[in-house]
Design a protein around this nucleic acid. Structure first.
Lengths: 244, 244
DNA sequence: GCCGATTTGTCCGTATGTATC
DNA sequence: CGATACATACGGACAAATCGG
């Protein structure tokens, strides 16, 4: 439940848009009238609207108004975007998720791991391999590296559930920021084995490599997420920045 | 040249970060001191900083300060992200770009095209196929659909250069918003032919499908951009939103 | 553990500029 | 031209988190 005012307005407008209260291409009420509706200042409605712009829900036009450009996506495949745990994505996509821990060890970052992950040499890490099922179909293999000092007490049992749950609710850590790179890579034997892939059909995978920071500004996670190509779908909304 | 104040501050700070004026993990000057430096209001510096947050350059921490988390990326491959034309990306990546127009016709959207692109049935469109070279290596095949009424006078000659240049500088259109979906798809015969791909090495491509809106809120472009998997690299920075 | 100083987060009100109609 | 709409900028107030004494 949001407690800040701009988030309440944001969520309310977002819901209205999703529920078709505004037609595609229709203008939303003007800022002034929203000020009346929500009994708040202009800055506050503008902040809510700017979030909707980031989401690709609306578009502002100086002198004209704010246009609804939301179009629902067909939910045939598993859609990702934003920072979400596998569990959260599963729920949003209305699928049943399950996670299997394939591998769990504690390691110290050497030169090679450091280059790959961005952790400094000598860092104490947990290294996990996890297999994610959606509706009992294996779709994703994750290679996770967690900084031990930031994620103390991680166990295979916890990793089988949601690690983000553990971080946020047990350790009260706040996940803030995630730098991601998407590439396409050749299938490895591990991929082939656990995802039951036929190399003749697809011989590569969608790979998301991400570095995640907590609210202390510490990078505490590096993850390489390898997705079955036929179920991979990454969604994004880009806003062209003004330069002048 | 930016003329708004917050963009000037944003660009200045961004440059300082890129030039290593602040060390990784170091705190930037506080908002109050930035107010002194730039002789502006608090909102203005905050706005500049929030842009840097979106870029993944810094991270704000309530009660503590603003931490520099910028790490330069190795520019070995062609990196995309944000809304950019092929020409802009080429320049940013310090490569020489060239574009070849394979196909150029005018069509009317039927049911099938409408479903695929999001244009309504009956829309008059330009349909192009273009091949993009980087340092004389064919890397990307684009299938572009442009709304004729929004992009009048498009010719193969223009398409061989930068269409975005034409749109922004000749037609004075402003590109605003782009909804993108990244998937992985099987290689087609067209891909194989023009990109000189060996199916035994890679049998799929990275595909970016995007719908782009102009400042009138009109979707004027649908593009499917098919990338050689071994040169594909999509970069992104996600900020976890507060919920409460 | 408390208190005060510092720093970022939220919110308000107002003024002015710019684009559209 | 005036009215309306969003964009930029300023200044002030209070809240929440952090840190040092």
């Amino acid at each position: 439940m949001p407690k800040s005012k701009y988030l309440l307005i944001y969520k309310d407008l977002k819901q209205k848009i999703e529920e078709d209260d505004f037609q595609y291409q229709e203008l939303l009420p003007s800022e002034n009238s929203l000020i009346q509706t929500y009994n708040c200042s202009r800055n506050t409605v503008r902040r809510a609207i700017s979030q909707l712009v980031e989401d690709g829900y609306v578009q502002t036009m100086q002198g004209k108004g704010v246009r609804n450009i939301y179009q629902p996506v067909e939910q045939t495949s598993y859609t990702i975007g934003g920072i979400e745990s596998f569990k959260e994505s599963s729920l949003r996509n209305h699928k049943k998720g399950r996670t299997e821990v394939l591998f769990f060890i504690e390691i110290t970052a050497d030169e090679k791991i450091s280059r790959r992950t961005g952790f400094s040499v000598g860092s104490e890490l947990y290294y996990l391999q996890r297999l994610h099922f959606l509706d009992e179909k294996p779709l994703i293999i994750n290679h996770n590296y967690f900084l031990k000092e930031a994620v103390p007490g991680l166990t295979p049992e916890i990793a089988q559930g949601s690690i983000y749950d553990y971080l946020e609710n047990e350790l009260h850590m706040t996940i803030v920021n995630s730098k991601r790179v998407i590439t396409v890579e050749k299938i490895t034997q591990i991929d082939e084995k656990y995802l039951h892939l036929d190399v003749n059909a697809y011989n590569c995978m969608a790979v998301i490599s991400s570095q995640t920071y907590n609210s202390d500004g510490v990078m505490f996670e590096f993850t390489q997420s390898r997705h079955r190509p036929d179920y991979f779908r990454f969604q994004d909304n880009a806003v062209r920045r003004r330069l002048a």
